[in-house]
Design a protein around this nucleic acid. Sequence first.
DNA 1: CGTTTTTGACCGGCGC
DNA 2: GCGCCGGTCAAAAACG
Length: 302
Amino acid sequence: MEDESGKSIPGSTEFSGHSSWDTDYFFSNDRERNILSEFGWNLQRDTVVRDLETGGSFSAFDQIELDQRSDLAGSFSSGSHQVIVSSGSASIDNKSPGGGDAASSPSNQPSMSSSSSEEQPENSTGSDGKLPKIASKGTKKGQKRIRQPRFAFMTKSEVDHLEDGYRWRKYGQKAVKNSPFPRGYYRCTNSKCTVKKRVERSSEDPSIVITTYEGQHCHHTVGFPIGGFIPHESAFAARFADSTSTNIYYPRVQFPLGGSLHHVSQLQSQGPYQVRPELTQRPPPQNNEGLLGDIVPSGMRS
DNA sequence: CGTTTTTGACCGGCGC
DNA sequence: GCGCCGGTCAAAAACG
């Protein structure tokens, strides 16, 4: 468990290449993982979690949750609530066009990292740009799509598509600028579910897989009866609000500490963790393999 | 034969 | 206004 003990990635493996991520939280320590595990997110030691909250998504949550988030934000960033609440004003893209590209606003783009060479590996540039030709998705003209909460997981793994208890169907793949690795786009196979996820490898550390989830499942996992998926913001906020005494998370936007923002030290630890290829297809009967399969929040199901 | 993956085209946002 | 780029579509191929 104490794999990362002291190990620091030589090349400082950080999220450098992902400066555009609307990141709010970034977990990289055992302690942080422990907290997550209390949610039922039994993350592998090689996993780092990031909450890619977006401004637009807040409209989907209660005010209470917002408040809690504010508290949370203030606890570590001296009241820079915007960091959390609006994801560093990263993307309130459900506003009018032009104003929505807040994500690209210079203010929230600290030195970010050494190699900002990589542009938006995550899109966030507010260019969610989709609006499928088939306007069946309820994306009417004038009202942009509200981006769902996003969470990214960095995992050291040989396989790209990590098992998470849900069934996904790939609907696209694109080459990532400045990265030799393509990015895969997946959608939950449940027709009623709009959750999507992107999978890509870190161009800096090919052994790391970055999985970004967007949205919340409206159904249970296939292999995990305890259903639920990404805990609601409220859960997050509440939990963290409780442990404000410790620096559980780091608001990237608030820590322009020259690239050293987040060292995913544990990532470089060669934990025995690895997902078998077969598992990528079918959810395992038990929740010990999956990266997110364990994510099924235990207390979620109320 | 039903489902998933592959892959090129297309769309819309954004920067220049 | 144009080109770039991320994200999505959809037809065909692949798979089990």
